[in-house]
């Protein structure tokens, strides 16, 4: 049986307002699962519940058949997570941060030095490794997060808006990297607003709308099913409730007035 991440009727509400409502889907090893939804649809909440940073109200989250919460330490060891917002200790340098994460994950020093050095070089951060993160651009911070998430060779990789702030070159590298990691048997759950990128690298998408899953299928099958040519069109049909042209016209009118 291949490695899978499985969510069964997972729900979470904040102060009585439902953020995720009975979400169920499966992400498999070897494929990249795209997790899509508008702002506030519950994507990041789901990601945080999978990492264990947030407790769900109900439902089950299983990885490799083992329920989250049964052995949190073993769970954390297998997870690599890039959060939506690049919240880092900005008083540390990029190198110091990565060393700290490696130590917290108890990676042997020699091994961690090699990996950190390699990741910093490959991600183009080596020359800035001693600079405080407070001076890093958003893209650089994103790279630090990515490096921190991959240091321990995790089995489950959760990427919440990983392309945010990255330049074109870095985005292309990340795009290939995600596919490469999936190809090496990792379970990759990936959330993004860049539908074109999702369409290119994801074999399977889960679309969330107001906390509920409205689609869970391969892109190809969704295209056929909905008789639409692109993921953008599918996404719009399923989640966009506004007349986008009218809203843009109103904004332009407002600032001209």
């Amino acid at each position: 049986m291949s490695t899978t991440l499985e969510l069964r009727e997972v729900s979470k509400s904040y102060s009585g307002i439902s953020a995720v409502d009975k979400a169920s889907f499966t992400a498999r090893a070897g494929e990249v699962t795209g997790y899509l939804g508008a702002n506030g649809s519950g994507k990041s909440t789901t990601m945080k519940m999978i990492t264990g940073l947030l407790d769900g109200d109900s439902g089950e989250i299983l990885f490799d058949g083992i329920q989250l919460g049964r052995d949190p330490v073993a769970w954390r060891k297998r997870i690599g997570y890039v959060p939506e917002e690049p919240h880092l200790y900005t008083h540390l340098s990029g190198l110091e941060y990565l060393i700290m994460v490696a130590q917290l994950r108890s990676i042997p020093q020699q091994r961690s030095s090699e990996i950190i050095d390699g990741l910093l070089r490959l991600l183009g951060l080596h020359s800035d490794r001693h600079v405080a993160i407070s001076a890093y651009s958003k893209g650089m911070r994103q790279k630090v997060l990515l490096a921190a998430a991959l240091l321990h060779n995790p089995d489950l990789i959760l990427l919440d808006e990983p392309f945010s702030g990255l330049d074109v070159g870095s985005s292309l590298v990340l795009r290939s990297l995600i596919q490469e990691l999936a190809g090496r048997g990792k379970v990759v759950l990936f959330s993004s607003h860049e539908l074109e990128t999702v369409e290119r690298i994801c074999s399977h998408v889960v679309i969330l709308h107001r906390g509920c899953i409205v689609a869970d299928d391969s892109i190809e099958h969704l295209r056929t099913l909905m008789s639409l040519s692109s993921l953008e069109a599918i996404f719009s049909q399923l989640t966009v409730e506004q007349d986008t042209a009218a809203i843009s016209r109103q904004i332009a009118d407002l600032i001209h007035a």
Binding site: L53, R76, K77, Y81, H87, V101, R105
Partner: peptide, 16 residues
Amino acid sequence: PVSLRANWIFQLTQID
């Protein structure tokens, strides 16, 4: 705290 929002990394890496 030095940066409340960055504390998630300690939470996520608590394996000891």
